[in-house]
Design a protein around this nucleic acid. Sequence first.
RNA 1: GCUCGCGUAGUGUAGCCCGGUCCAACACGCCUCCCUGUCACGGAGGAAACCACGGGUUCAAAUCCCGUCGCGAGCG
Length: 411
Amino acid sequence: MNNFFFRITHTDKHSRARAGVFRTPHGDIHTPAFIPVGTHASVRGVAPSVLKQIGVEALLANTYHLMLRPGADVVAKLGGLHEFMRWDRPIITDSGGFQAFSLGASIEHGVGKIANIFPSEPPRSAGRLAAPPPQRPAGGNKKSFVRITEKGVEFRSHLDGSKHLLTPEKSIEVQEKLGADIILAFDECTSPLATRAYTERALERTHRWAVRSLTAKKRRDRALFGIVQGGAYRDLREKSAHFITTLPFSGFAIGGSLGKSKRDMHDILAWTIPLLTENKPRHLLGIGDRDDIVEAVARGIDWFDCVAPTRLARRKGTVFTSTGNLNLTQARFKKDRRPIEAGCPCPTCAAGFSRAYLRHLVAAQEPLAVELATAHNLRFMTSFMARVREAIAAGRFAAFRKQVLRQTSRV
RNA sequence: GCUCGCGUAGUGUAGCCCGGUCCAACACGCCUCCCUGUCACGGAGGAAACCACGGGUUCAAAUCCCGUCGCGAGCG
């Protein structure tokens, strides 16, 4: 059953960075790789043909969302995800474990995977005491859509309120029906605000779910990855890495809360990755800032998925450049006839669309804004990852890393 | 020419009848920031109107009275 094969072609001498190729039934993923998120079997606003042109090698879709709509059986009947969405390259499906968090604690606490719990300086109004810091981050304190038990996660559909139980068995069944090449074990992504006791309990449950996920897997033409959890607790991360590594997974993903800062995230990676099987791929879930990518690659990560390039492009036309992000809604771009970045080979810049025009499209909420901005950002990411790979192959990753960190820090 | 109605931030409106709680509210727009396995074209914040103009009544007027100007409708 050599449908999958991971070959490490280059290793960095000064870090744990490595470059390689992961072979799947739908083609190769050159690592380190950036994998865009297409939750609903679609990268918002961008057609598969354009994604290919941009150099995207794989996509990540979501079990929970596709299970609710259009339904796993519908997708299966229509030939599986690849045929359904007309994408013939590798697909990964997330197990739905993240939704246990994003529709649960994330909503209740108003936090993301990396806690941003320190409110920025309260505004100081003259002659008055500054307002007291809010008790909770903005957006928190809403009702959860989930209930987590040993059996699995009970979701109240965010679409129509109907109830759905996602268990490890169900998640794997759905993922096999959807037909992704790489599927993920059903896990619980814990909140950075969870207590240690809770994080530990959730971790142990996720481990039991990992075993159940493996047992539930029937098809050999899918690669199942295990997920390391443990929050920001060193011993829990180590325990998790040890445990997951003993199981016959095809690869690993690092998930869950990554602490309260980028520094925490670096530590978590440094603790866990050395414990993972060397010749199996490692996926860092949900991370995608350039500095984070470089730091994670240096610690041994092979690929990433992240909504940032697509979400930022869609929400406000935030667009990546080598010197930092541009927020196209800013007034200074109103008459800016330059492309997003001179010399950028993406379809948007190559076609000569100006910042002023893009700003207009964003302001007018024209769908084309989403397509053009997203295509640019994704091309930016694939180019960036190509440079990461080249740097590793050429033995100059250390310098490359330093350069990236310098750039991103002054942005 | 007469009668009636209207004139509040960029736009559209609320408040006016029953003066104070209006150094004026809401929506959209505008400006800035945030977003890391996408519930959500999401979240947070900000600037912006001396309430058409002049006079009067009153302790107090966007709110009441008079006049002027502008806009609209009707009548001639």
